[in-house]
Design a binder for these strands. Structure first.
Lengths: 232, 232, 232, 232
DNA sequence: AATGAATGAGTGTTCATTCAT
DNA sequence: CATGAATGAACACTCATTCAT
């Protein structure tokens, strides 16, 4: 994670928590997958994201994947297990940018100003969303209905990310770059703005009407001024 | 809409677009509903919001409502019609604060500063969300899966609100209270912040840890500074 | 139970344990059954007894009953519940001849000799088996595979019958009509002989080659001599 | 078969019907079995006897046997063939005690009294049941559902045994040791008593409460007196 | 207006069996 | 000989919807 904008897999030169390595390894078992299994997952992602989990049928997935219905259940005990096998790994990837041991050092070395940090995060997550949009959509729709998802998210993701993010915020508050309001509140305001950007980009506005560079600039300036220490 | 914080129904002393009146009337047919029908709707809201539309069964709704399975279909031709009867009226209510003919006049008369306007909107929508949380949840989950919902939302709601909202933004930009960036972008940043507030309040944070007054203040100040005209 | 050979329902002039009445009542809810439900039960009995429970499919039962497959599950939550609804009541009927309060009195009044008692029991159970043969067959095949059946049988049937039967045996032993060996052993030898008779009659021998009167006589004489007190 | 209580394999010094030899040979192909095949048969016996044939799945058997699902079908074309390969040999063993050419001679030489003969048979079959209990259970449960089993049993077993058994009965009737009633009826009464003993021993009574010696004595005395020629 | 029995298409899942490796 | 991925028919069961009462 020399650069937040780089893919996690490419940053093995940096200290990574060993448990993350484990998680990533588990995730990357993609290679042991059968051809048919890969097709099943692809079909499932498409259909789940289009119709929702409960609204999709395994027979439809099998058909789109070009396999027999039984084949799905050879690889996933239940339809739900198929869902989780798609969505759970995403959570690991979600925390990737923060999955670094010496977070403060990274901040100091690579991101001296809030602006640089925010821009890195924004661009990085924008890229991430572009790449994994359908899975993210599935995830966001299903999380209210599946306890396991919710718990896994809270435990392994939210806590992990929040801790590091608060650290970053306090780091910049200490440096006089951010106003001294509660870190969770700062966090909320930053995240709202970035997620608002992502949603607008991927759900609401047709690509043709979207000037990404400019919108990123506006958003970051909005956050920077919104959270700048008040003068006088 | 003398005060945005007042209930729409209470503002009949103000000029209301006639089509809105129609919509509200349609919505208020609640009174013609039989006891059983009301129980069906209540049960449906609970179950839909808990399990999602596709994950709920009409028999479960009937059971929770204490009616026979057939009774649901006496009032609603299909399960989907039941969903729409719940969700569609909400959209009307959503646009209520903007459903005023002479919007600029209202702004000038009641909300001379951006802050006043933002605070009114925020408090008002917070109240709205508190009241209609389950239905909003249903709405947000189902909108990607139902063309009718999406279209109705775009046509009768989004457009209507956007137009008025842009007008308000330009009004305050003209008055030098807001930075001169594209109205849609300003809109996005404002709405992101407010929705982020609502989501944090209703989905993420336990009530005990939430100081509403403060969070509202932080949010409004964030927006105000974020969108303040840059000095020099 | 003035006469063991009479149907239980016909003996209301005799004291019957109240719990038995309850059981019989529950069982006789046949009257509240739909036409279709009765047909389902009939079809299920036929098919279960022909192919065994696990070897029968609900679709086959539905077809033979002339109903839609869903109809079965409207009346019985699961296939197993259908099985139990068929088999469980049989157990109650099985104990009917012993379901009398003052068993010793009945013995003294109606069956002064072992022979009379044995003959009554034999004829009565032969009649019972003739009537309920398919259900008995189902019961005997399924009891090893269903804990509920086993437990219900042990608790409500075996114990109930054994107690009374032992009483009868000791009654006749006291009167010098039976050899003084342990009641359970006597019981085993009697029951083996009678069940052997039933099985031979209903499973092994074609009706044409069977002289029922004679076989009953042989069997009862066999038991009487086998259990007669040894002379000197 | 010098002694009925001895294992069949140990009696090769006695004249054996050649067809039996063939059957035993077929059965003893156990030695040509691979390790895996033996494990499959063992697993199948356990699972079939626990859940019944129709209630067991080949995948479960494969799992318990520690082999791949396909391996079963390398050795047995179908699930049913596996069943038959387990159950059919048992039938051969069942008739073993009677599989002797010169049956009457054996009776005269080794079992001069009915009591000796009955005791030998009883002890021998009790031992047999103890050894092969699970397979016997499978056999008894499946015989009503499989024509092949039924026919094989009738043709090669029942007839074979019956013939010899009737011969034995008539032999003892001729000697004045048994009452002169039809041989099939005598047979039925004897077999009922012995099977009743076996069932009580292996299915109903916990070992702790069972005094085998005594129960055998009671049973044999019961049969002897039950079938003793009536005096005057 | 309300019921609840009935439907039959559809659900997720299991099954015995096949076959390329 | 052994594997295990793949199959597709069958399975028990659920569903939204209909309709006679």
């Amino acid at each position: 994670m020399r650069r937040l904008t780089e893919e996690v897999n490419a940053v093995s030169d940096i200290a990574i928590d060993p448990w993350l390595k484990e998680l990533l390894r588990l995730n990357d078992e993609e290679e042991k997958m059968t051809d048919k299994q890969i097709k099943i997952v692809q079909a499932a992602v498409e259909i789940f994201s289009e119709k929702g989990f409960a609204g999709s049928s395994t027979s439809e997935i099998a058909q789109k994947a070009g396999v027999a219905e039984g084949t799905i259940f050879r690889h996933y005990k239940t339809k739900k297990e198929l869902l989780l096998s798609i969505v759970a790994p995403m959570m690991t990837k979600l925390i990737a940018p923060f999955a670094v041991k010496d977070f403060t050092k990274v901040l100091e070395a690579d991101y001296p100003t809030v602006e640089q940090f925010l821009r890195a995060i924004t661009v990085n997550r924008l890229e991430f969303a572009r790449k994994h949009f359908p899975v993210i959509k599935i995830f966001m729709h299903e999380i209210p209905f599946h306890k396991e998802l919710r718990e896994q998210f809270k435990e392994t993701v939210a806590d992990m990310v929040l801790e590091k993010a608060y650290k970053a915020i306090r780091h910049f508050q200490g440096g006089g770059q951010l106003i001294e309001i509660p870190a969770p509140t700062s966090m909320r305001l930053i995240v709202s703005s970035i997620i608002g950007l992502l949603i607008t980009r991927f759900l609401l506005v047709p690509e043709s009407e979207w000037d990404e560079e400019k919108e990123i600039d506006y958003t970051i300036n909005f956050i920077l001024h919104g959270l700048a220490p008040r003068k006088s």
